[in-house]
Design a protein around this nucleic acid. Structure first.
Lengths: 214, 214
DNA sequence: ATTTACATACCGAACATTCGGTAATTTACT
DNA sequence: AGTAAATTACCGAATGTTCGGTATGTAAAT
């Protein structure tokens, strides 16, 4: 059950200008498979043997690509955090009211979640056990700070309800967004939608609520 | 740092009619401490040594109370799932429109989250690695089914917006609720509120939305 | 020939768990 | 009152296993 699916993706997923030397995994594909396993069994629950089995290679071969288990985690977490940083930068650069920038940030975050789902999933489960994890949590905190400041500004503008604490609002809002990783699975190559529709649904509920007004 | 805090709670947290035999941990306090560690470092990331250190007793002493690491997990997960079952039962028994039962279920779930936070936190992080975890996921799925059916019924009643898929709605709604475990910490004995206020905030955002209507 | 990717065999440390025995308390009996 | 039995909780030292990681050599491509 593992061999087929791995040997299919072994040659770098068909892209790249055919490197020299013996063919095999490139770092990117290897990382993708590793993160897949991490998300299934949890980082601590995944052994290097588990990864090797899924990859279809020997355990030691992994160490040809990365220095160890922690580096796999670091690379994966950086991919998620870089996505968030870009979305944050775009929202910051926007010349618009806070509520618009906030909605843009929500949509940007959902987009990152769609394009880099496995990495974001992993990031959201980090507990801070090792130095790598704590560094990721640090970068994440700065993102959360931006969210909180946007909510606060939008509330001062009178654009969002003032009867709920801004920090609480920020947490619930992005708690809803981030809960996507628990069930959302991206569609295949055929545009089975989910793209803009997902962000629309999130924004609809978050900003206008579930209840029908009569 | 560990000895003080444990020796304080060692005698069964001061309650119970003084059991016979040598004093020490009862199952309940031991479980509570264990779950605390599980939530800090993750279940797979926590060794029995870690637990023993925090408890202030030898590793082997834990096996006097439970059969092993997995039983600790099973007991903890059951505590969370029983809470959800009770809340589900109360919502089901209510003779009211679906949207009212749905809001009751949301409030009930938030209440469970407040009273059994550590257990619910642990439950929400289960990945399905072992039999114990898979059994818990199974019970959880039946809870999710109830939620989905309530949302669907409320949408048929015309009480919640029909432009978002019911299943998606259900997931986002309880995704927001469950995200509480990521940051919420119960108040001390002094009623520092958070009780009804928290559920109110969740329901306000979920049902009426963030935006101010003018 | 050079470069890249992998395999076999292994190591020390950490892991969950077991075992035989000990310590501190309450109950029951004299 | 004194003491033995019962009960509950714990400890230290081992067990076999699994862990992440390494050493050394081989296979397949340019």
């Amino acid at each position: 059950m593992t061999v087929e699916q791995t040997s299919a993706g072994k040659i770098g997923a068909g892209l790249g200008p055919r490197r020299r030397g013996r063919p095999g995994y490139d770092l990117e594909t290897l990382l993708l498979v590793a993160v897949e396993v991490f998300n299934e069994r949890g980082y601590d629950g995944s052994s290097m043997e588990d990864l090797a089995r899924r990859l279809g290679i020997a355990k030691s071969a992994i160490y040809h690509h990365v220095s160890g288990k922690q580096e796999l985690l670091r690379l994966a977490l950086d991919r998620a955090l870089d996505g968030w940083s870009e979305a944050a930068g775009r929202a910051r650069a926007l010349d618009a009211p806070a509520i618009v920038r906030l909605e843009m940030l929500v949509r940007g975050t959902v987009a990152v979640l769609e394009t880099r789902l496995p990495y974001v999933t992993l990031l959201l489960r980090v507990r801070g056990n090792t130095g790598v994890e704590r560094a990721a949590l640090e970068r994440r905190r700065s993102f959360d700070a931006l969210v909180a400041s946007l909510v606060e500004e939008a509330e001062r503008d009178g654009d969002i309800r003032a009867d709920v604490d801004p920090k609480l609002t920020a947490r619930l809002l992005f708690g809803m967004v981030n809960s996507l990783v628990e069930w959302y699975r991206p569609a295949g190559p055929a545009g089975t939608a989910g793209g803009p529709g997902l962000a629309d649904a999130v924004c609809a509920i978050a900003f206008d609520g579930l209840r029908v007004r009569r």
